[in-house]
Computed example of a mutant assay.
Amino acid sequence: MSLQFSVLASGSTGNAIFVETEEHSLLVDAGLSGKQLQSLFTQIGRDMSKLSGLLVTHEHSDHIKGLGVIARKYKLPIYANEKTWHAMEKLIGEVSTDQKFVFETGKVKSFGSLDVESFGVSHDAAEPMFYVFHHEGKKLTLITDTGYVSDRMKGIIDNSDIFVFESNHDVSMLQMGHYPWSIKRRILSDVGHVSNEDAALAMADVIGDATKRIYLAHLSQDNNMKDLARMSVDQVLASKGFYTGEQFELYDTDPKAPTPLVLV
């Protein structure tokens, strides 16, 4: 049995992550158009109609834009917590009752041999949550869209084999950029997004012997760059005694191109 995944798209323009075992395949968020999602699936050699279900993190448009479209087209079950359901129902259009499932924060839902653990994060949505995938002793963590990483979150995600970790912005770029102060304040707040440096400090607390790959995700198109994010994270981790290329590798994600399917 194997656990594989691909970050299909990551960023403020749309987010989607594909996770599969030999028994089941799941899509976490569908923040792009149906056409875009179809193209991304084709690029990784997978068929969207074979999905077992759709997992939702929260109701912001860059996470649910194509959700209703593909759920209706392929008759797919959707899993979200109650508050997220209430917040997004009018946004995704009509979905059949038998496709709606409640997946509460802090619970575990099993898809065959794949156990999906949900956990709450700090973001300005109804009840945002992300996921840890457990399979045959392997652990894949997805954590973006949070203003900070609490000790509770760290305890849940600790020593994952692979992390898909938010590294949203460079603080200096954000502060000097063109965004109005209200948006800058929201991004920098405890319910906004994690900066490169804060992401790295959190990573230093959860990297373990099992950790082999870290993907930097949800980079701001206006307030970050791939090279800058990687350099900033590298420097902070090195100051904490963690060296990229020795114990683990750092990888980019992209708002338009999927990462290759990787075995966890």
Rank of each mutant, 00 (worst) to 15 (best):
E20S: 09
E82M: 14
V194F: 06
N224G: 05
I183E: 14
M173N: 14
S150N: 09
A126K: 11
E127Y: 10
S12G: 08
F248Q: 06
G11Q: 05
T211V: 01
Y131T: 13
H193A: 15
F101K: 12
A217F: 11
I214M: 12
F5W: 08
S39R: 13
S232Q: 13
M48V: 08
T84W: 06
Y215T: 07
Y243R: 10
M203A: 14
L261F: 03
G177E: 07
Y131H: 15
L76G: 00
E127L: 15
Q36L: 02
E246K: 15
R186G: 05
A210Q: 14
H60W: 12
E89W: 00
K139E: 04
E136M: 04
V108G: 03
Y215N: 10
D145E: 07
N223E: 12
A257D: 03
I64W: 03
F119C: 09
M231S: 13
V95L: 08
S113T: 11
A229I: 06
L76F: 01
S150G: 09
S189N: 04
T253L: 06
A80W: 09
S150M: 12
S25V: 02
V194H: 06
D227T: 12
A199C: 14
L67C: 11
K83P: 12
F130R: 07
V194D: 05
K154E: 13
G31Y: 02
P258Q: 07
A229D: 04
G93D: 02
S160E: 03
D190S: 13
